[in-house]
Amino acid sequence: MMELSIIWSILIAQIMLGLAMAFAFFRMVRGPRAQDRILGLDTLYINAMLMLLTFGIRTANTLYFESALIVALIGFVSSIAFGKFLMRGEIIE
């Protein structure tokens, strides 16, 4: 009983995070402007990081933590680079 409820609640949490990732991805594809896409990408990164953490809880494996940290790092750097580009670069819309 206990085991089942743990597995189910973590599964439900993962489904919710997956939906959140889908919404963020939709915002990234849909736009309508470049800054909306980058905002969507940034949210997608954070949601993916949370998803990795829930995988870590589910399988009790600390390796997922390292990948979550790396995803967070790369997400930050790429979003900053994109944001800087929007301030200076020319974007075709």
Binding site: L17, L19, A20, F23, A24, L39, T43, I46, N47
Partner: peptide, 9 residues
């Protein structure tokens, strides 16, 4: 998190 993404949408 899901509510935040719904808001984004």
């Amino acid at each position: 998190t899901l509510i935040g993404s719904v808001g984004l949408l």
